[in-house]
Structures are given as C-alpha cells and as structure tokens.
Computed example of a mutant assay.
Amino acid sequence: MCTSIFTKTKDNKHLLSRTMDFSFPLDPSPTYMPRNYTWVSEVNEQSFTNSLGFVGAGRLLGSSYFVADGVNEKGLSIAELYLPGEATYQTEAEQGKKNFAPHELILWILGNCATVEEVAEHIKEINLVGLKAPMLNIITPLHWIITDESGRCVIIEPTEKELKIKENPVGTMTNTPCFEWHINNLRNYLHVRPAQYEPASFGDYVALPFSQGTGTMGLPGGYTPPERFVRAAFFKEHIDQAQDEATGVTNAYHILATVRIPKGIVVTSEGAQDYSQYVGTMCNESRSYYFNSYDNSQIAKVTITDDLLEVDKPITFMADKIETFKTLN
C-alpha cells in the first residue's frame, strides 16, 4: 500500500508527499545521511560512497540504513511504494553494473544524483537483484516516484530486466496495477467534478440535489490502489493551489487525509492491520523533510542546512510519537 502526490505552489516550490501504509511496524524517524557515507550492497558486497547528503524517513537495520523516501542537498526527492505482483528482479549480480537489492536503490539515487535527468542517464547502469530486506525477511516489490526542482516527475517500475524512466504527468502514484493502467482508469471518472449538478426533470417531477457535493458523486471511497489513485489525483487537481511552502505542506496533508488508512479498516489475509504509519513531505527547493507519525498529528521538520552538511555520520531525529495538544486555557 501507500499513496504519493507531487504538487507545486504559486511561488514555485515543488513538494513530493507520501503515506507509508504497511502492516509491519517499520518505526522510522527523520534521518540525515551525510556526504561521503560509505555503504555495502548486500548483493555482492560492493562498496559505494555517496557524494550527496540527504534527509528522509529511515532507520538503522543491523549495520545498514533503510530509507523509504527523502530529499537530497541538490533538491532531488524520491519515495518508494509497493508494486506487488508486478515488480520483477534479477536472480544474480551482473558484471559491469551497479548491483543493488531493491531496498538499496534510494540510498544510491539520493546519494549520487542531483536531477531526474541524471537518474535517467544512470538508470541503465543498475541491476536490481531480488534479495530479502532485513527485518522484513521478504523481497520487497517496489516502484519509485522521483522529482526535482524543475518540476519533472517520473517513476521507475521494474517490470523488465532493463530499468526505464516513465514520465508521470498526473503527479500521483499508488500501487498495483502498473502506472499505465491507473492513467487509463481516470477516463472512468470524467463526470466527477467540484461543481454542483443542476436539478433534473423526471416527467413533471424536478429532482433537486440533497445538498452540496453532488459533483463528487461517483468518486471512489475504498482503499484499493485504484480507488486511492483516483481520489488523490482528483483532490490534487482541484484543491486551491498553495501560496508557499507552508501552505503547500498543509495542502499535502489535506489531500493525503483522503487516503490515509486508520488501524482496523484494512486487515490482511494473515490478520495483520495495514495502516498509514506516517506521512512524509519533501520540499525540493528548501531541502526540507516534513514528517508525522500515526500517533501524533503534529508535523516535525528537518532541513538540510550548511551545518548539517558538515556532519560526517548519520543522524536520526526522534520525532515525538505521542499525541501533543496545545492547551488554550
């Protein structure tokens, strides 16, 4: 599960936002990964050293860091989402290529690419090998949404041996089926609109709307990937455009509130609760990462500053995961 949206403010800020929906408690926190951070691929123990610092939702798993999304010091942002039943990986390392487990791809992209164009240039050098993620003990079926300061939004869906970039004109992504199916499915919702429908006559009877909101009749309300895709695309398209970064973050949280899954509403076949564990928003221009967890609606923020860029070790910022209230009396 998971839903992601890409929005632009009136003062030209670009924000990538996502829900993290999962049944296993991931317990990530905003984490800064420094320049010159060296890590080892689980595929063939090849060592990589990142040149760029970045911040996102992550945690230390054993001796390695897991990062699910983030923005780097050059204004490139990325989020990984599930693509079960569609994602396919290779069975072994390939000589002459960068060989990564699926959950390692973000570490390399954020640590080494400044723009979507650079990602597109290097994507053919990468070979994804199906290895299990630590702690989860499963091969994570992933796809990725990537954006930069230019406003370009693309996705990577590993459905063939050679990885390719797909343009994302809608700025929305969820889960299976593949992206092209979701784009075509939007044609089923041409009738959905913010404006009220007019009264209609049936013989001598004039049927009046019950109340406001008739234009949204037919907007899907469930939590399947197609339903969440349509809802997110509709709200993203019609919400009042934000003036600046702060209102852009507020907009993102309002849009994603329509697809966030409370505990107990979606239960897997194994009896586990699939729910929205956190929401993360990345601003490409300010290099800021916004985060709130399931248990605390307050939004935390970490910005890549000059001082942070001087740090030489990963830093985990512990956001408060207990609900906080502002007392007014």
Rank of each mutant, 00 (worst) to 15 (best):
I5L: 06
T9V: 07
H14V: 02
R18L: 04
R18M: 05
R18S: 04
F22G: 01
F24L: 06
P30E: 09
M33H: 05
M33L: 15
W39Q: 01
V40A: 05
S51R: 15
R59Y: 12
S63V: 08
V71D: 07
N72M: 10
K74H: 10
I78T: 04
A79E: 13
E80D: 07
E80C: 08
Q90T: 10
T91Q: 14
P102E: 10
I106H: 03
H122F: 12
I123H: 06
I123W: 05
A133L: 05
P134G: 13
P141V: 15
P141K: 11
T147L: 11
I156Y: 05
E157D: 12
P158V: 15
E160P: 01
L163C: 10
T174M: 03
C178N: 06
F179R: 06
N184C: 05
N188I: 04
H191W: 00
R193E: 05
A195N: 13
D204L: 02
T214R: 01
P225F: 07
F229E: 02
A233K: 00
F234E: 06
E245Q: 02
T247A: 11
T247E: 15
T247I: 02
P262N: 14
P262A: 12
T268F: 05
R287G: 03
Y289K: 03
V311H: 10
F317G: 02
